[in-house]
Nucleic acid binder design. Structure first.
Lengths: 177, 177
DNA sequence: TGCAACTGATTGCAATTTGCAATCAGATTG
DNA sequence: CAATCTGATTGCAAATTGCAATCAGTTGCA
């Protein structure tokens, strides 16, 4: 799982970075799910990543410059993983991947609502999101005005609205007449 | 190499389609390199794909609906592979991948000039390119006015200009004084 | 006619990668 | 001081990968 340098083509090199089944999933969970710890990534993983694979990929992503690791002051054995600028600029790729998958693949409604919102928002929303990520992970000053809902909040709200609506559809009348 | 349906997340499902080292490379060569035959994909492959892997991936991409296969009238054993609409709409993803790789990875100049042109052209250029691909692969009427250079011609010209310039830099004075 | 080259693959095989389950030692909590 | 939580590591079976050789039918050319 290292970089082969099979060719200097940008698409090939990008594939050598995250052309496997897990690297981009981990980055997705960090970017969209706000995960920062090993256990968060392990236990809340939708796709059920194994701990050895997670450990291997985190290490690899650090070597490649997509993640950094720091001690968590609250626990001597706890590590906090942060996205680098290199990883944050994957947001447009994630958005395009999500948009494509939503059209062509059998996505579930509650999981694709975020892709839809991100697609509708377009580059300006992606920029706002990347700005927020820089604030969270790199300590950069936030350019987003306070009060304005964060992109992650918007994504979360949209997700929960779909979940709530679907629960209502299954059980339309909760209490008896 | 089948679809697991690990989760209904669009990004995950997209990864299950081309989250391997070869599928997107094959599609890249068809989209940008204009390859249509097995041997073209095999012999002109920059990354040196093996014939069994190529055969396997072509089959898989057909099963997934990204490619179709037809007989070549010129040769009874020759097959022509065509992109489907599903594959053609990968152009924006390819463009983003190329743009990201160009910034963060050790790309070679002559291979990244295409990514640069595609990035500069933005969505309008991508649309024109997809229109041309629909014309080539799906027999759709071309909306691009005749006379206007095709995107593939532009990409090719840009590539050759870089190669020529680099040759000149290495050997600045060809003939003796 | 005859033979080499070309067509799109397939097969055998060794090496690598994968994912599951169990385990680890140190840190913290109750 | 025992249970739990931390980020891993190890053993192992199964799957995947890529290289090399091979295949049978088709074609071009002498």
């Amino acid at each position: 799982m290292s970089i082969d340098r099979r060719s200097g083509c940008p698409i090939n090199l990008s594939l050598e970075v995250f052309g496997d089944r897990w690297s981009l999933i981990i980055l997705r969970d960090m970017i969209f799910g706000g995960r920062r710890h090993f256990r968060e990534l392990l236990n809340f993983s939708l796709e059920g990543i194994a701990s050895n694979i997670l450990a291997d990929r985190l290490k690899r992503l650090m070597e490649l410059g997509l993640l950094t690791k720091a001690d968590d002051p609250s626990h001597k054995q706890k590590a906090i993983y942060s996205l680098t600028e290199m990883a944050i600029t994957l947001v447009p790729i994630m958005a395009q991947l999500g948009a494509w998958g939503r059209v062509w693949l059998p996505v579930s409604e509650e999981l694709s609502i975020r892709a839809e919102l991100l697609e509708k928002g377009g580059p300006p929303l992606w920029e706002q999101f990347m700005d927020e990520l820089r604030h969270e992970h790199l300590g950069a000053p936030s350019k987003t005005p306070t009060g304005k809902p964060t992109v992650r909040q918007q994504l979360r709200a949209a997700y929960e609205a779909v979940v709530a609506r679907k629960a209502e559809e299954i059980r339309p009348i909760k209490t008896e007449a």
